[in-house]
């Protein structure tokens, strides 16, 4: 089965522990960041998504509402949901200096005697605490 037209395809990772609606949001954001989706592109309709992914319609609506709230898409009644803004662009140019900063930090962590697993655990727990503190 093919998706109609040039739309993105959603999928679901059941073991991730991430709420399904959040997985959809991340996939749209990811597609925007990578330039797979551009301004004016249409998202698949709720019915198309549920018939394909076997997922609750309210989950799709909730994800689309959230994306609309973030100003990334807009719903046009009877027509569908359209991308209004792209992501990335300017932030992409900031990747390289950040990558270098991270590499420096990794070197420091290794020199302090941490192995790969400890580094990963430290990064994940700090990242989680940071995101949760910011809501």
């Amino acid at each position: 089965m093919e998706w109609g037209g040039e739309v993105i395809e959603f999928h679901l990772d059941a073991r991730s522990g991430v709420a399904p609606y959040m997985q959809l949001i991340r996939q749209v954001r990811h597609a925007l960041r990578l330039g797979v989706l551009n301004e004016g592109d249409k998202l698949p309709t709720v019915k198309e998504v549920v018939a394909r992914v076997a997922i609750n319609p309210n989950t799709v609506s909730k994800a689309y509402r959230e994306l609309e709230y973030e100003g990334l898409v807009t719903a046009r009644p009877g027509l569908g949901t359209f991308v209004t803004r792209t992501l990335g662009g300017d932030s992409l140019s900031k990747h390289e200096p950040l990558r270098q900063g991270l590499a420096r930090w990794l070197t420091e962590a290794r020199e302090a005697g941490l192995d790969d697993e400890s580094i990963e655990a430290l990064f994940l727990s700090s990242f989680r605490a940071f995101s949760e503190a910011r809501g």
């Binding site: 709720v46 019915k47 549920v50 018939a51 076997a54």
Partner: peptide
Amino acid sequence: RRNFLQGLMELTAE
């Protein structure tokens, strides 16, 4: 199973 659930969700959306 997947086909059944796809159909069920399509009906729910409709």
